[in-house]
Each structure stands twice: as C-alpha cells, then as structure tokens.
C-alpha cells in the first residue's frame, strides 16, 4: 500500500525550550486506521497539530498525498479533517451554520445535501437549528466531528475521540469510522485508552516522550509481544512444589491451589506438553486449566515501563 502521509525527521521544540518531538519518522498508509498510543504529554497532539498546520515544526518534512505541508499547504490542508481533543465551539452559532462555515473555510462550494448527510449520520439533523451552547457535551463532540467532515476530507484525525464520551456516542463514532474507511478515508486517532486502539485500529504506533517507540500491525504486535498465561487449578492444596518441576519456573499461589505458568506465544516450543507430563509424573491432580492472553494494554504498559 502506498503511504498518504509521509513524516520524515520531524522535530519540535517549543519556544519555552520544551522538546515535544524527537525526530519522528512515520509512513501512514492510504486507507488504514492508525492508532497513535501514548501517555499524556507524549507528543501525540503536537504531531497532529504539525501535520494540520496549527503548530510550526522545528525541522523535518511532511508530505500529504505527495504535497509538502508547508509549500503546498493549500493542497495538504484541504485533504485533512481534524477533530481536536477539546470542545472548541462557537456557543451562539447554530449547528447548521457552524458546519456550513467549516465547509466554506476549506474552500468547498456550498453543498447542502452533503451537510445534511453528515448531520444525519451523526444524529444531529433534528438539532440543526439549535444554538451550540444549548447542546450537551456529547452533542458538541458530534458537532466537532461534523465540522471536520464538512469538506469531505481524505484523511481524518481524531484526537482523543473518546474523552468524556458516553457508550452510545462511542458506538456511533466507531460505526462512522468504519463507514469512512470503507469509502477510502484514512483515519488517524490518538488515544490513551488501549481498548479503543485494540478494537478498531489496523496498525498501532506507540509514542512516548516525543519518541516513536514502534509502529506495527496490530495482529503482529499482539502475537509478537503478547504473552499467554496458563493457570492450573489443583484439586488439592500443596505446600511446596516438587524438585522435578523447578525447571518450569512455576508460581504457586498462596493458598497452594493454583499454579501459574507464563509462556510466549511467538516461541516455537511453549513447554506445555513437558510441563503437563511432569505434573502428572509428580502425582499432582488438577481440577481445571485456563489460559489468558495478555491484552494490548499489558503490552503497552510493558513497553512504556521498559523504555523508562
């Protein structure tokens, strides 16, 4: 797949001297959903703001759809829609006017049908003549998304889209993201909720203290770094483990009822077969066996603390 956004050696030091981005290199593929994961203050918003033209970069090059974000800013910016993290809205404007304003601002001719479609998709159509200040927080978030979609962007940035959003809106939002992706829109979302990335992203990029730690297909990442845990529930409590089981690195629970065995899914030999035969040789009987897959969250926490 060809890349729609190409970020080369982009760095940013704010005027106060704070270094928000170390040289970052990232290729974002056409039509993918990329999740940019990272703790607060990692540089996610800075990176997005630079691509969108809100913040000036200190160095490096960014191309969107083959155009340079500085020299050909008109082309690059008209391809991009941005839903910022904070709810920045004009309180006294109506929903319809503010969304139409966004379309005009991006230089697109008036198209009431498109605006209507966007508002209907976001369940805002009934509220189109309401002043924004009369809307709830969730509705305001929808307005922000509608504004970003008003000019039919090819790339959509969602900065922390689930911050302060209820279940229904989150569901609507993911449906919308799926629909947009099916029409070829590339979506980049930042989040520090890992389940969110796990649920919808194709690829995951992890950023921490302005450094890009990794960019990987979600599936690869999960299987490469994912660890599985095997829990063996014994039928009778044991005080200590027999010597013959020492090589397996088992952990015995305090009540002596459960053995915990960790193994890597990517490894060729998981060691489960020999463990089980050693267990029966030692005369231990078990009641139940369960395995647990580590979630992206565990992987992420592992990564971030490793780099610390």
């Amino acid at each position: 797949m060809s890349s729609i956004i190409s970020i080369k050696n982009v760095e940013k030091t704010y005027s106060g001297g704070f270094k928000a981005l170390d040289p970052v290199n990232l290729e974002i593929r056409q039509g993918e959903i990329l999740a940019l994961l990272g703790p607060n203050g990692a540089g996610k918003t800075t990176l997005i703001s630079i691509i969108c033209g809100i913040v000036q970069k200190s160095g490096g090059k960014i191309r969107v759809g083959g155009f340079d974000t500085e020299e050909d800013y008109r082309q690059t910016r008209s391809m991009i829609g941005l839903v910022p993290q904070e709810l920045h809205t004009d309180s006294f404007e109506t929903v319809w006017n503010t969304v139409s304003f966004s379309r005009g601002l991006f230089g697109k001719p008036r198209n009431d049908d498109h605006i209507e479609k966007v508002l209907r998709d976001l369940s805002l159509w009934e509220k189109r003549n309401r002043e924004i200040m009369t809307l709830s927080g969730g509705m305001k978030r929808r307005v922000m998304i509608a504004k970003a979609l008003a000019h039919e962007p090819q790339v959509l940035f969602l900065d922390e889209p689930s911050a302060g959003v209820d279940v229904e809106l989150r569901k609507d939002m993911w449906n919308l993201v799926e629909t947009l992706r099916s029409t070829g829109v590339t979506i980049i979302l930042t989040t520090h909720y890992i389940e969110e990335a796990e649920a919808i992203a194709d690829r995951i990029a992890v950023i921490r203290r302005g450094k890009l730690l990794l960019v990987e297909d979600k599936g690869d990442l999960m299987s490469k770094l994912g660890r599985k845990t095997l829990l063996i529930h014994l039928s009778k409590s044991v005080k200590s483990l027999p010597e013959t089981l020492a090589k397996h690195g088992l952990e015995l629970s305090e009540d002596g009822m459960t053995l915990t065995y960790e193994y890597e899914t990517a490894g060729k030999r998981t060691g489960i077969t020999s463990l089980l035969s050693d267990l029966s040789a030692a005369g231990l009987k078990f009641r139940d066996i369960e395995t647990r897959q580590s979630s992206l969250e565990d992987i992420f926490v592992g990564l971030v603390s490793e780099a610390a």
Binding site: I54, T76, S78, T89, D90, S91
Partner: peptide, 11 residues
C-alpha cells in the same frame, strides 16, 4: 475559546 484551530488548519 480555541476555535482558532479551524482557521489555522484551513487551506
């Protein structure tokens, strides 16, 4: 109020 983000990100 922060709505300037839209003007700055517009072409």
């Amino acid at each position: 109020i922060g709505t300037i983000y839209e003007v700055l990100s517009a072409p």
